[in-house]
Amino acid sequence: MSAQTTTPVGAAASPAASPAARPGAGRTGRWLALASRHRVALTLAFLVVFPWIAPYQALAANILVLGLYALGFNLLFGYTGLLSFGHAAFLGGGAYGSGIAIVHYGLHPVLALVAGTLLATLIAVAMGALAIRTRGIYFAMTTLALSMCVYYAFYQAESFTGGENGLRGINVPSLSLPGFRLDLLNPTVKYYAVLAVVGLAVWLFSRLLSSPFGAALEAIRENENRAQACGYDVRRMKLVAFVISGALCGLAGALQAIHLSIVPIETMHYSTSGQAVMMALLGGMGTFFGPFVGAATFSLLQDGLTTLTSHWQLFVGAIFIAFVLFLPLGIWGEVLARLRRAGW
């Protein structure tokens, strides 16, 4: 209360003691504050040189797309505090949307991206409107159940989606834009074309986070009841966050369909939803760059382990558990926490 009265007992007894301290807020040193101000530029600078660090360039593009998927998921999980187990519906919705637009309607790839994102957005509106009525574990279960409904709908619509076999033949050998033409068969060109889209999304995402809306989402994550008592229409804001998150994941899916030339039905499977959770936690929930670290870690593990053993999922699972137990902030979250402690 006043300057003189400090009861150390009170701090320990505060209900705020939560298991994972979010590294997203708090006192930061000069360097971290500077880095945070230029987070978009730094992220993009890293992604620009990334293909030259990654083992091979197709993997780099995979990671880029998965990073966007994890980024979109993190808006809901890390910044709004909502754990969804249904985000495969958005990645898949975006992938099928853009794939179908190309295969069945011969749309320009850029329009196909728009179509895929729109389809994912519509799915997110429908799923969100139902799911945000629930909280906590019920929210997770509702999103899971709804995403399984979406999965079966796409599974059944075989003439459009290819059903069990997936949607094949999404061939985009080149991209003609006014004034120039990009050869997408060249993996380097393809990577940077994907990066142009991801970069735009990263920039928009950053603007969203620093906006008053982003501040309100963090307040909702921190304390939903208090946010409501302050006058925020929490349900509406959660729905908006859910839909934006779905749209970003949809864009990732749309890019993935063009990148891989195929949409496997597994894209919509609930294990893909679990993958988003894993990537967000591996990288560091509620951190800006964490999703890309998480996506890279996951992909490299998967890539490395599949060549060694067919039971790779077992090992990924074990590594994931180790992370949750020993590195709850995730890789990037831990890096930030250490830098902060060192007074950066």
Binding site: G26, A216, A219
Partner: peptide, 28 residues
């Protein structure tokens, strides 16, 4: 006690003051 634990003291009150506006801009 019911505050926003992982936000700064200043941000706790700032975000509350912000709630008075019905519209919460997305991109400013």
């Amino acid at each position: 006690t019911n505050v926003f634990p992982h936000l700064t003291v200043r941000e706790n009150v700032r975000v509350a003051a912000q709630a008075r506006n019905v519209r919460v801009p997305l991109f400013r």
